[in-house]
Design a protein around this nucleic acid. Sequence first.
DNA 1: GCGAAGTGATTGACTGGTTAGTCAATCACT
DNA 2: AGTGATTGACTAACCAGTCAATCACTTCGC
Lengths: 207, 207
Amino acid sequence: MSEHQFSGRFTFEELTKEETPLRILQSTMHEMGSNGLTNLTTKNISQRANLSTGIIHHYFDTKDNLVYAAYVYLVKDLHQCSLEVGRTENDPKKRLLAMIRMNFSATHISQEARNIWPQFWAHAAYDARIERLLRAYYSRCHSNLTYNFRQLISDPQNAKMAANMLLASIHGVWFFHRFNAIPSEPEQAIAMLVAQLESLLATYQEH
Amino acid sequence: MSEHQFSGRFTFEELTKEETPLRILQSTMHEMGSNGLTNLTTKNISQRANLSTGIIHHYFDTKDNLVYAAYVYLVKDLHQCSLEVGRTENDPKKRLLAMIRMNFSATHISQEARNIWPQFWAHAAYDARIERLLRAYYSRCHSNLTYNFRQLISDPQNAKMAANMLLASIHGVWFFHRFNAIPSEPEQAIAMLVAQLESLLATYQEH
DNA sequence: GCGAAGTGATTGACTGGTTAGTCAATCACT
DNA sequence: AGTGATTGACTAACCAGTCAATCACTTCGC
């Protein structure tokens, strides 16, 4: 049974293999992104997917479960991307650089994610179940960064600190890039984070 | 007339001078923080403030205006704090350090803010009016940081880049501190950002 | 082959409950 | 007597979830 079970009826994998529940999920993500959680209705979701409202409850039982499933979908997709980075790059520093770049890539994921992440954060702030999912995702990101820093920085404590700081920096730069508050060209954002990575390595690495 | 007019009836200053609208505002912020925008109702707000639902519309016309006023209140309060830092500290580096510390202080503001900021971001993601307010706030923060870095870094372009990076770092560290995803002691968070500030100065400063 | 019975997908009208906003009435104070 | 603050019952709209009915498709006895 899936780690990410979210309703009594099906597991995540079973659901997304089928056509209709996947359409519902994608429609939900689109609606969440463009109108926010507050204005998310089963009517809007079903209309966008050209389905009836009833079918939503057939597959997801409640609206809450559907929204949760959307976050799981988002997180799994991104995790898949980071696994791919781990496979294609064999040098730890190259992997860190690839992970930075990944966050600003223009795949369908980022385009959708751009609008959903803020809803995700807001939801996690008052819903314990959503918060657990968010924390699990960031925890995995952090482990991933730490693993790579360990191969570049001899002191494990320093490697962990470098991972902390890079994770925070990636998040911060992505955030201001998202809201166009800092020069918002992806290239500049990536350059800032590459400089940050170099700076962290220079600080913590003993040659 | 106030820069922050949000309803046809009163200006922000006129409203918050009075007892009742201020109680409504604080009650709104508390409800937003604990139950999220999605579950925010005029009934809950008025009950917490020991008032009727009607009075909310008397002062704020619509719920949207009330929520907007809550964000304005939050932002103004924080801006007030940063002005105070500017007055009490006279050294640019000390001012930057004080601004870092400010974000993790346990004043009533941060306690309330902790729960409202995620709602603010989510709301800004799909509402243009809220987005403008959020951008204006971060723009002011950025100007403030840039002003202080200018006195420490001779090249204006470098000063701006340092401000970009510190702003992003503060946001990122605050975020993970907020969600307990990175070692969440305020002292450690502040120490990370102080180190980041030192590193930025070392990189961009020519002695 | 073929009809019957069964199975799960899908519909959309309907319900019970909730909500933002209205408004006539009352209250407190001048 | 007048003025603004405040109340809370009321309304029109909306929404999540239900359910009986239909549809598409398979299985199986003969």
